[in-house]
């Protein structure tokens, strides 16, 4: 762990959180409708935003008529507001054995990185008074914590995040399918994984999420060594997840290996894009605060 200032909450880096200050995770679409269930919260007023006008049709509530426009154009229009929906986000954290990999140059393993990401995002969402849930999975769903906007949710999530035991292979495809059904309320699904699995099955799973009208974000966590393959000496690569071992001279294979990895990455990237899922490839040596802040800012621009 690169930062362990708070052993109680080892995945929340004050720096990261500081960076995330002011950022929020927004749902993409404009959700029509009322500001239902207005909370008498002090933050309420901030979050109402004017989105667009709609022509009046008989039966609409007259409280939302934009009189200024009527005054100007003699036409009756209703104001439409961006609903401050209760954002529901689901954090899907891959805790399979492959996430355990950490190259010597990397500050932390993929899992740790994922844990940090999950923790930071959970904090962010809860901070903006939205709900966040957590699913940890490998070849099955290990933990399922229902989304809740209660601040005490954070502690529960952090605990679960911490107590993972990565020792199984990944099976994203079937799990996604399964989860797509189980996640009843529409929300943002954030997949935190290295995606070392059958890509097509995984994409099909994502498709299912999209079919259920979830907003999908894929955070593809990789160790730089896995992509660049910097090994020199003859190495016995002992595989996780019972994949067996390979003894080879890395120098002779580097190009071929990279080609394989590139193929995989392109496949994933293009697949996500075609599913209209946000895709972000992250290396474990990249500073989390930068990564997240940039990502959130980009997404905000896009959704704005």
């Amino acid at each position: 762990m690169a930062f362990a200032s708070n052993t109680d909450q080892p995945f929340l880096d004050p720096r990261v959180l500081a960076r995330l200050q002011g950022l929020e995770l927004r749902a993409r679409r404009v959700v029509e409708g009322y500001v239902a269930g207005l909370h008498r919260s002090p933050f309420h007023g901030f979050s109402v935003e004017f989105a667009e006008h709609r022509e009046y049709t008989p039966g609409d509530d007259l409280r939302y008529v934009d009189w200024k426009v009527f005054g100007k154009t003699d036409k009756v229009y209703l104001k439409q507001y961006e609903e401050e929906t209760n954002l529901i986000s689901y954090l899907l954290l891959d805790v399979s054995e492959s996430m355990r990999y950490q190259s010597p140059e990397a500050p932390m393993s993929k899992l740790e990185y994922g844990q940090c990401v999950a923790a930071s995002l959970a904090y962010l969402v809860l901070h903006q008074r939205d709900s966040v849930g957590l699913v940890t999975f490998d070849n099955t769903v290990r933990n399922f914590i229902r989304p809740n906007s209660n601040p005490s949710q954070l502690k529960k999530l952090l605990q679960t995040i911490r107590d993972v035991v990565p020792d199984q292979k990944t099976r994203t495809g079937p799990i996604f399918h399964d989860l797509a059904e189980r996640l009843t309320r529409r929300g943002i699904v954030i997949v935190i994984s290295d995606l070392f699995d059958d890509v097509d099955k995984m994409l099909t799973g994502l498709k299912h999420f999209r079919h259920c009208r979830h907003d999908v974000i894929v955070l593809h966590i990789l160790d730089r060594a896995e992509v660049e393959f910097p090994f020199r000496q003859t190495t016995m690569f002992k595989g996780f997840e019972d994949l067996g071992n390979v003894l080879t001279e890395p120098q002779n294979l580097r190009k071929a290996y990279r080609a394989e990895v590139d193929t995989f990455l392109n496949h994933v990237r293009s697949g996500c894009r075609s599913q209209q899922a946000d895709y972000l490839q992250v290396y474990t040596d990249q500073p989390l605060d930068l990564v997240l802040s940039r990502f959130l800012a980009t997404r905000r621009k896009r959704t704005a």
Binding site: E97, V246, L253
Partner: peptide
Amino acid sequence: RRRFRQVSWAAVEFLRAAVRKNARRL
């Protein structure tokens, strides 16, 4: 070939594929 480093590795599939495709050439 007897003296090698041992490395735990997650992306074995890619490695295998690469090896398989280049075994003969190598």
